[in-house]
Every structure is written in C-alpha cells, then in structure tokens.
C-alpha cells in the first residue's frame, strides 16, 4: 500500500511543477467559466434559471475532460521514458504507477472544481442544495472525474507519444457539447436528441444540476452511476492489459 501513496505523492508533485498542468487545471477552468457566462450566456435561453447557475455544472464536467486529457499525457511521458523500466525492475506494480497518475488527476480536478465554483459564486451562481444534495453532487462528480482519468490513462498507454496521447482524448473534451451541459437539448436539431439523451455526460450533468438546484433528478443519478461504474469496470482491466502489452 505504501507504494500507492508514494507514487500518488510523486504524480502530484510532478503536476505542481508542470506549468502546463497548472494552467490547464486552474487558469483554463476559470476562463471557460467566464467565457460561457459572458460570451455565450446572453444568447442562451435557460428558462427561469440564471445562465451562470445553469452552466456551472457543465463547466465542471468540461474541466474533468481537460484534467483527464492531461493524465493521458503524463502516463505517456512515463511510458516513453526510462523510468517505467526502473519502477518495474524495482518490482513496483504498473497499477500503482497508473493509480498515482489518476490520483494526481483527481487532485488537479478538485482544485479546478474549487476554482470554478469560487468564480461562479462571485458572478452570481446560486445553488439551492442542502448538505445531502452537495454531498451527492460531489460524489457523482468525483466518480465521473475518476472514470475519465482512468480512460485518460488508457489513452496514454495506447498512444506512441505524449503528443498523440493528448489527441486520443479529444472525445472526452467533445462529449459535453452534444449534451445538456451548455445549452438545453431541446434547442438542438432532432437528430442529435437521440445521441445527447443517451450518452454518459447527460445523466451526470442532469444529476449535478438537479442536486445542486434542489430539483427532481429522476433516475439520472442512477444512470450516471451505472455509466461510470460500467466504464470503470471495463477500463481498469483494459489498462492492466495495455500496461502488460506495452512493457512485454
């Protein structure tokens, strides 16, 4: 167990010292929040809810994608650098190395979430949630971040180079757009509805919004849970297999 803690500490330290990572995880989320609210918000009709309140959960989800994308890069850097051989020759498990990167990703995203919420509050975000709503929302967000980070790790193991690894993750950055993250799905063309209603981001975003605004969430939280746990159940063994293949 000590090796998991040591490697998580390592990844967090490497993240803190990587200017790209700091900008992507702190500056970018805040900018995105401001861009959505001030550039697009005026043109988007979200009913009785103020746009900032509507979009804040969407920005959190988008940031999780950026954080996971960075995980793909950091994993790939490790795999293309001699250090993975040293770890292996020291009998350190591949899972521990990858878990370290995921832990750093979760840490980055926690910081991003705090920054985004801070700015959102400052510009008028007014959630209605009680403590249980907040806890449930945080739990779902954390699970979503963890799931995306493991997907990022898989992309990092698949890619031949850190640059390519970043490219592999464009899906994660794209998926929030055809969902209710930034604009209500009803405003999209009909042919998109089927996709938008049945992709994993939608239940996650609907749960976050419902929980934070203290509105009915229907079965969204359960769908979100099933999506995330299902993806994790596939991604974890895939990562282990990819790691073995990569280091054979």
């Amino acid at each position: 167990m000590a090796e998991y803690a040591v490697l998580a500490g390592r990844s967090v330290r490497l993240t803190r010292r990587n200017p790209d990572a700091v900008i992507t995880s702190l500056v970018l989320p805040v900018l995105l929040m401001l861009v959505f609210v001030y550039f697009f918000g005026g043109a988007i009709e979200t009913g009785t809810t103020k746009y900032v309140t509507y979009v804040a959960p969407g920005v959190l989800i988008l940031c999780a994608g950026y954080g996971a994308s960075m995980t793909a890069t950091t994993v790939s850097v490790d795999m293309t650098n001699g250090i993975i051989d040293r770890f292996r020759a020291m009998d350190t498990s591949g899972t521990a190395v990858l878990t370290g990167h995921v832990a750093a990703s979760v840490a980055r995203n926690t910081a991003a979430t705090a920054a985004v919420l801070g700015v959102a509050f400052a510009i008028g975000f007014r959630p209605q949630a009680q403590l249980t709503g907040w806890l449930a929302a945080c739990g779902i967000l954390l699970l979503y971040i963890t799931t995306l980070s493991w997907l990022g790790a898989a992309a990092g193991l698949l890619a031949k180079s850190p640059e390519a690894a970043g490219g592999f993750t464009f899906v994660m950055l794209f998926l929030p757009y055809p969902s209710s993250a930034f604009v209500p799905v009803e405003t999209m063309p009909d042919w998109l509805h089927g996709f938008a209603d049945h992709q994993p981001v939608t239940p996650v975003i609907e749960s976050l919004r419902g929980l934070l605004l203290d509105q009915p969430t229907g079965n969204s939280p359960w769908l979100a849970l099933v999506w995330c746990l299902g993806l994790l159940a596939v991604t974890l063994p895939v990562c282990a297999a990819l790691f073995r293949r990569r280091t054979a």
């Binding site: 330290r13 490497l14 010292r17 020759a89």
Partner: peptide
C-alpha cells in the same frame, strides 16, 4: 537486483 539502464531513468522535475 538493481538496474541502471542506458538512459537516465529519473524524474527531471524532482
């Protein structure tokens, strides 16, 4: 064993 490979295996940022 211990292994020191042909190319340095260290974290540059540490």
């Amino acid at each position: 064993i211990s292994l020191t490979g042909q190319y340095a295996a260290l974290d540059e940022a540490q």
